[in-house]
Design a protein around this nucleic acid. Structure first.
Length: 436
RNA sequence: GGAGGGAUGGCAGAGCGGACGAUUGCGACGGUCUUGAAAACCGUUGAGGUGCAAGCCUCCGGGGGUUCGAAUCCCCCUCCCUCCGCCA
């Protein structure tokens, strides 16, 4: 969430930032009004509280001196003040609750260098790598939802039978490839990132910390009986790893990575991208995440982007990098680079990674701070994260890109060590081995 | 799931209705001493809010209550530990 003090000192600057996102200015105005009302009440209640405390001390003093009558008089006075104080404090608490609730729904300010724009059409393409989309051959123009089931490595029909639409089931080498991609992503980042295997189901506060709640409740799977949520990304538990903690500056940057299943209701996208693996209610992903100081954040953002693109590149896929415009930024993000992979079979760019810098927005919600080495006041950390690899779309792009003229698939080199000797799938669905 | 015990500052651990934001020990940091270090000694050492500042206020797992006054008493919840049951 935004820093209330900043809202008070530079309301115009904050309003300008939110306007770049296309936010309704009234939301911020409400927060400002609530904050003022809250502080006025709080001050009044605090003054009364002080008086009550002082009077109470007098009561104790007078009793000890044996002046019981006087003590009773002072106690009476203190009681009536206390009653008023109680009422004011309750009112102040209620305002504080409303204020926080509103503040939690206000998105982060876009970074100064995030491009202007209202929506996806205004995102800025920074660069492309790999074969141009027009350069792909006809044998690569087969959508994965056709070749996958034909080769017996993808079973969409039965997945739908057991779980409904937008669920997938991988089989045989398809399932192995899925796992191989996870393992590859973890192994290539193990040089700098601590591997974590977090819970896949979390409490409400954990979802609030990243910004997935309260505003986007309809996107999350909620287990009402136990007040738990299925995580939409490992970003959620990893961001809460240090929740409520004060880190030493020496600990920063701290880098973590995690494989996790991801669950998304995709409430707003019914009927869109429903075919194949393009949009699923459950998928596997490896996430990389860092806590940093403000000074370190820029460099780390580049590092995370570099790691994500190198991995895609090593798989031989065509991709492009987009700088998201202010209007298309996720609620918690200040700056985001999207990596989109070209899938020749469906002839579309698929978002496979969002590498984001959240400034101190998430850390404020999660109360993650660090103690500066120079002894100055504790600061919220900056958080950054990105998908190292989101499996289904990469899986689909590989199946399409790596399809040979004879209908077989030859997997890219980096995954081969994880495929138990297989190097691809023959057109009849049998595994291809390195010696054949 | 049942029965009992517990939750206090970085850690350990007192406090059980009045000067307690909290004794003390350890750790950490600064200083004295020392060629350097150790030891010893002295000092500092939780977080948040508000205020120009002095200060004031809040926080002893969370929420509610009793009281002039709550870390201390009462109620509810959560988590941890021990024992029993069940179980991958």
């Amino acid at each position: 969430m935004l820093d209330l003090r900043r809202i008070r000192t530079d309301p115009d600057e904050v309003a300008a930032g939110l306007a770049r996102r296309g936010e309704d200015p009234e939301e911020l105005a409400q927060v400002v009004r609530l904050d003022e009302a809250h502080r006025a009440l709080e001050t009044e209640a605090t003054d009364l509280r002080r008086e009550v405390k002082q009077l109470s001390k007098q009561v104790g003093q007078l009793r000890r001196e044996g002046a019981t009558d006087e003590a009773a008089t002072v106690a009476d006075k203190s009681r009536s003040l206390g009653e008023r104080q109680h009422a004011l404090a309750a009112e102040a608490d209620e305002l504080a609750r409303q204020l926080r609730d509103r503040l939690l729904r206000i998105p982060n300010l876009p970074a100064d260098d995030a491009p202007d724009g209202a929506g996806p059409q205004d995102n800025v393409e920074l660069y492309r790598v790999g074969l141009a989309p027009e350069g792909f051959e006809d044998h690569q123009r087969v959508p994965h939802w056709e070749s996958g089931p034909d080769l017996g490595i993808l079973d969409l029909e039965r997945a739908v039978r057991m779980s409904g639409s937008m669920f997938a089931m991988y089989r045989g080498l398809g399932a192995t490839l899925n796992r191989a991609l996870c393992q590859l992503a973890l192994d290539t980042n193990a040089d700098a990132f601590e591997e974590v295997r977090p819970p896949s189901v979390v409490l409400t506060d954990t979802m609030v910390a990243t910004g997935h709640l309260p505003k986007f409740a309809e996107d999350a799977y909620h287990m009402a009986a136990d007040e738990l949520y299925a995580i939409p990304t490992a970003e959620v538990p990893l961001t809460s790893l240090a929740r409520g903690e004060i880190l030493a500056e020496d600990d920063l940057p701290a880098r973590y990575m995690a494989y996790s299943p991801c669950f998304r209701r995709e409430a707003g996208s019914a009927g869109r991208d429903t075919r194949g693996l393009l949009r699923l209610h459950e998928f596997d992903k490896v996430e990389i995440l860092a806590y940093a100081t403000e000074a370190q954040a820029g460099g780390l953002h580049e590092e995370l982007l570099g790691r994500a693109t190198r991995l895609i590149e090593s798989l031989g896929l065509t991709y492009r990098v987009l700088d998201l415009c202010a209007g298309d930024l996720g609620g918690s993000a200040a700056r985001t680079f999207d990596i989109e992979v070209y899938a020749p079979g469906v002839d579309a760019w698929l978002e496979v990674s969002s590498v984001s810098w959240f400034s101190d927005y998430q850390a404020r919600r999660a109360e993650i701070r660090y103690r500066p080495a120079d002894g100055s006041a504790n600061q919220p950390v900056h958080t950054l994260n990105g998908s190292a690899l989101a499996v289904p779309r990469v899986w689909a792009a590989i199946i399409e890109t790596c399809r040979c003229p004879d209908g077989s698939i030859r997997f890219p080199d980096p995954v081969l060590p994880y495929l138990r000797g297989a190097v691809g799938v023959a057109a009849d669905g049998t595994p291809l081995r390195s010696d054949t």
